[in-house]
Simulated scan of single mutants.
Amino acid sequence: MNVEDILIPAKAIRSEKWQLGNLISGELQPNGIVLIFCSDYRGINSGSAEIMDYRTVRKELYKLSKLDFEVPVCDLGDLISGKSHQDTHYILQELLLMCHRNNAIPIVVGGSNDLAFSLFSALNLHQKNLTYTQISNVISLINDGGEITEQNFLSKIISGRNFTLKNYHHLGYQKHLNELDSVKLMKEVDFEVIRLAEMMNSTENTEPYFRRADLVTLNCDAVESLGDGFSVNPQVNGLNRREICAYMKETGLSQNLKSAGIFNFNADSDTFFNHQLLAQMIWHLIEGINIQRSHPKERQFEKFWVMIDDAEIAFQRDIFTGLWYFGDDDKAENLIPCSRREYDAAKRGELHRRFSKT
């Protein structure tokens, strides 16, 4: 595949030495971050594949501070949509595989939410037993057997014979927008489903669902809208501006992050602040990745024992990060990420159901 045939290079944007734009290049570098902007929205009702203008987003992103970032960033440009929506999925997957072969983290920006299927599919070819965290206000499990859309892509991931989904976390759903049966089904198969109310004001309680995620995607419908709409399906309720930036940082802080996507953004918005917000969300994601890369690979833990009935239950705290885990294992990868709040609840005799499955 010739990359030049499927991408429109980003136009040069002048940046000061201290700005992020000074760190961004047009060449993919191993172990770096890769930005891919997409304009194919045919996965939503009445969606099109017309080329979107991301210049304002780029200008706002490039002028932000690069702080002490060391992870190289590549802006590959705008993906040229295929003749059909399925063609776009295929092209995107090939591009993502190229990133994975270089151990680079692709961040796909724009396009309809079903493009998350391509991120999962490409990553599944690269490694198995994936942990996928999605922030979305809706849980759609339609299984119509048709072409990939934002209504059926999640069902295709969960039921795909060739897919190895170890954990799935669905964050930010809103009760009044969802079928009760869909929520019940997700819980019955032991997937974590977290309401919007549990994510508001602080990331502390839901941070554990990001900590080991291989893939994180955001449906912008889960963000409250400004002006003419932050998303293509604007919502009056959702995560606010500060909250979504904080969760983008948590995404970057994942110990296992291999790929990320931000979908259903309203690229046609005439509201400047919507473009500025998206730019700052991307910046916080990049910041999180840089912080995680600076953490020591060898981890030390403090162990805490809790008595529940007649059983001794172990929790452990990472000495460097202060983050909490459930389990008695000496291998960090076998511990279950948790919050301080869950440890405190265990001391009161309340053990979260996901710990009882171990």
Rank of each mutant, 00 (worst) to 15 (best):
V71C: 10
N143A: 09
G77H: 00
L115W: 03
L96Q: 02
C74V: 13
H85T: 11
L130Q: 06
I107F: 06
Q86E: 09
N113G: 04
D114E: 14
H100A: 05
S112M: 11
A122R: 01
N102G: 15
E147S: 13
N137Q: 04
N143C: 06
I107C: 11
G77D: 02
D87F: 15
V71R: 04
K83E: 15
F69G: 01
E94A: 10
S121P: 15
K128F: 08
D87M: 10
I139V: 14
D144I: 04
I105S: 04
I135A: 13
L97G: 11
N103Y: 14
D78K: 04
L96T: 03
V73R: 01
Y132R: 02
P72H: 05
F117E: 01
L97W: 01
H100T: 12
L115T: 05
H85S: 10
F120L: 13
L115G: 01
S81G: 14
G77W: 00
S121W: 00
R101Y: 12
N129G: 11
I107N: 00
Q86F: 06
S65D: 14
S81W: 00
H85K: 05
S121T: 05
S84N: 02
V73Y: 03
S84V: 12
F117T: 00
G145T: 12
N103P: 05
A122W: 02
D68P: 02
L123Q: 08
V73H: 03
H85I: 09
P106G: 08
N124S: 14
C99I: 10
S118W: 05
L76H: 01
S136D: 15
T133K: 07
S84L: 07
G77S: 08
D144W: 00
L123C: 11
L76M: 09
L79K: 03
I142C: 10
G77Y: 00
I139N: 03
Q93A: 09
S65G: 08
K83N: 13
I80D: 03
L67T: 09
N102A: 15
S136N: 10
F117Q: 01
V71Q: 05
V73I: 15
V108R: 02
E94G: 12
A122L: 05
G146N: 09
M98W: 14
H89C: 04
D114N: 12
C99H: 06
L96P: 01
V73P: 00
I91N: 03
Q86Y: 07
S136E: 08
L130S: 01
N102M: 14
S121L: 11
I142Y: 08
L141V: 13
I107T: 11
A104G: 15
L115D: 06
A116G: 13
E94I: 12
S84E: 13
V71G: 03
T88D: 04
L96C: 14
I107P: 01
V138E: 07
L141I: 09
M98Q: 14
L92P: 03
S121F: 05
I91T: 11
S81L: 06
P106F: 05
G146Q: 10
D68T: 14
S121E: 15
N102S: 11
H89L: 12
I80Q: 09
C99G: 06
N103A: 12
F120G: 08
D87A: 14
K128P: 09
R101T: 15
S136A: 08
A116W: 00
